[in-house]
């Protein structure tokens, strides 16, 4: 008895063959995890410190001021924040119905042999680099917008009493409207893929029981699938919004780069990402302009962090079992 206790007590002293390796490996894994946290913290802190010069020079007014005058060294985020939000929201208004249609078709209507190839094609649309969307938008879409589309809209919707003001002005082809359209095409596959994945999580029994009552496909969608997946669908939309807010290259090509708020959606504008990409080469190290660009980056980070965090919480319950 006493001998047994002695051996047991002595046991921990003897190292098991893998324990050093285990400790090292577990430490490495944990350290890598902590590194990711540090990385995000470092991004926030470095943008904030970089933008501090601008924040302290212009105060809270930086956020709303529409000045952007490199000669007088007066900068404000108003125009680009406005452009960012308008293009992103407009893009979502266009993309969400289409994404829903695609997800609906892929999950409920498509013949089995078409589901995988069409689904893959839509996912490939998401893999095309954003600079390609920019070039395509600039050389293909913008001319089409400038000639038949925008003049037509100006002559029809532009004549209407209240909303007409949004669709007036010279049809340049570039501008907020075109940028929103390109963004919509870019985020479409992201939203469609999330919607398809969450639609597939609906237990077949629920759908079958609705079909058994004589519901049509659309009624099953409306009455069973959408209520079941509502939160995750909104999460998918937020994910798309998060992408649209920070998209740089595609927007930079077609936004028209104007530092003013235009009443018309056909007018030029700027988003935070496009102004950073376009103005960075002209901002000297240590200048107030560079600091203003970093401050814009900080604002963009806060915006997309909020949107992406909300999306994460909404999607977590459904997609991560």
């Amino acid at each position: 008895m006493s001998q047994a206790t002695a051996t047991l007590a002595a046991a921990p002293a003897r190292q098991s063959p893998g324990s050093t390796g285990d400790a090292v490996f577990a430490f490495a894994c944990r350290a890598a995890g902590v590194l990711v946290l540090v990385l995000l913290g470092a991004i926030i802190v470095s943008l904030f410190i970089g933008g501090w010069q601008a924040f302290s020079a212009f105060g809270a007014g930086f956020l709303t001021s529409t000045d952007w005058d490199p000669v007088q060294e007066v900068f404000g985020a108003g125009v680009s924040v406005y452009g960012t939000i308008v293009t992103a929201v407009l893009a979502m208004l266009v993309a969400v119905p289409f994404a829903f249609g695609i997800a609906f078709w892929l999950t409920e209507l498509a013949p089995d042999w078409l589901r995988r190839p069409v689904g893959t094609a839509i996912e490939l649309l998401a893999a095309v680099p954003s600079i390609i969307y920019g070039m395509w938008g600039f050389f293909i879409i913008a001319p089409v917008m400038a000639d038949p589309i925008q003049p037509f809209i100006i002559d029809t919707i532009g004549e209407l009493p209240y909303i007409g003001a949004l669709f007036q002005g010279p049809p340049f082809g570039t501008g907020l409207f075109t940028a929103a359209l390109i963004l919509a095409i870019m985020v479409l596959p992201f939203i469609a893929a999330v919607m398809r994945d969450v639609f597939l999580t609906v237990p077949p029994v629920y759908k079958e029981s609705a079909y058994g009552l004589g519901c049509t496909t659309w009624e099953v969608m409306k009455g069973v699938v959408i209520p079941y997946t509502r939160v995750s669908v909104v999460g998918g939309i937020m994910l798309g919004l998060g992408r649209a807010l920070g998209e740089t290259m595609a927007v930079t090509f077609v936004i028209g780069n104007a530092n003013r708020i235009s009443t018309s959606l056909f007018g030029g504008g700027n988003t935070i990402a496009s102004v950073v990409a376009l103005e960075f080469p002209e901002a000297g190290a240590g200048s107030l302009k560079l600091s203003s660009l970093l401050a814009l980056g900080f604002i963009l980070f806060v915006l997309s962090f909020i949107v992406l965090a909300a999306s994460r919480f909404m999607l977590r319950s459904r997609l991560k079992g």
Binding site: I43, S46, L293, L294, L300, F301, F305
Partner: peptide
């Protein structure tokens, strides 16, 4: 927390990563 932050980084605007590396 790590999973959450990694998911945020997955969708974070890449231009901000550029600005961060520029400053860092």
């Amino acid at each position: 927390l790590v999973r959450f932050v990694s998911d945020i980084l997955l969708s974070a605007p890449s231009i901000l990563i550029g600005l961060f590396v520029y400053s860092a």
